[in-house]
């Protein structure tokens, strides 16, 4: 059986909120290392990969592998019933028909119990390869969100160019063009404001801003975001969570337009 208690229901709410517009029906794969999810969007150009390690829960118990097939719209409806400060416990039997969600108030004696009917989702496991990226950029998540939101007002696509000059986000649209360049930057007092650029080769790729803006819904989960790029390889956008957990998005580059 699965029993996973999360001190902050809000973390799970934010994760589901960040992915629910990209993917609809997903398997939450539970085993003794934690709860993982991998799903592609309908157009097969973006991929979500979430890992909530067992250390993120206290306690965490999962005796055998359990796949919880959940519709994220349904899950969102139930998670709305949790207060941000509630403690969340996920429960399921070994061959479950439902997943149970229990919300406990830390301050009062309220206990709320909900269940969601599970779906049988036939989802092949995607082998995401270990990749040596040509360029890795760590930057404030809010900054990346702002750049994407600003540029989508002008264009559907953004080019991300990484060179020894820094990283340049540029777009061209009907009304004109826009570009934002960031250079490596260290803020001793506020390390969450740092921009770190590691590059082994210059990289230039173009991406659909619609997807990037969507990924940025995860900005509330982490102060920093990491962008990993290599020519002709999907971009990795990573939000690190506590206890080595993460939320990752992959996006295929646009080619030849």
């Amino acid at each position: 059986m699965l029993e996973a208690r999360l001190e902050q229901a809000n973390l799970f709410k934010k994760v589901v909120d960040a992915i629910k517009d990209l993917v609809q029906d997903c398997n939450f794969d539970c085993n003794d290392s934690g709860i993982a999810l991998q799903a592609m969007d309908n157009s097969h150009v973006a991929l979500v990969s979430m890992m909530l390690r067992s250390e993120s829960f206290a306690p965490f118990r999962c005796d055998r592998n359990i796949a919880l097939g959940i519709n994220l719209t349904s899950l969102t409806k139930v998670l709305k019933c949790a207060q941000s400060d509630d403690i969340l416990t996920l429960k399921a039997e070994d061959a479950p028909d439902v997943v149970e969600l229990v919300f406990e108030s830390a301050e009062s004696d309220r206990i709320s119990e909900y269940s969601i009917k599970l779906m049988d989702i036939d989802q092949e496991h995607l082998g995401i390869p270990e990749t040596d990226y040509g360029a890795t950029i760590s930057m404030p998540a809010a900054e990346f969100q702002r750049i994407c939101r600003d540029l989508i007002a002008l264009s559907e696509s953004v080019s991300i160019e990484c060179s020894k000059e820094g990283v340049k986000f540029a777009c061209q649209g009907d009304i004109g063009s826009g570009a934002v360049t960031l250079r490596q930057h260290t803020n001793v007092d506020k390390p969450e404001m740092n921009v770190e650029i590691n590059m082994s080769e210059p990289v230039s790729l173009t991406f659909s801003l619609k997807y990037l803006v969507n990924f940025c819904k995860a900005s509330g989960l982490s102060n920093q975001v990491r962008l990993c790029l290599s020519n002709e390889v999907p971009l990795l956008v990573e939000y690190s969570l506590a206890n080595n957990s993460h939320l990752r998005f992959y996006l295929a580059p646009k080619i030849g337009d």
């Binding site: 592609m40 097969h44 150009v45 390889v233 999907p234 295929a252 580059p253 646009k254």
Partner: peptide, 14 residues
């Protein structure tokens, strides 16, 4: 879009 999908397939299949 089909190009993008192909890139993804190639990436995932290694």
């Amino acid at each position: 879009k089909s190009f993008q999908t192909e890139i993804f397939k190639f990436f995932l299949d290694g």
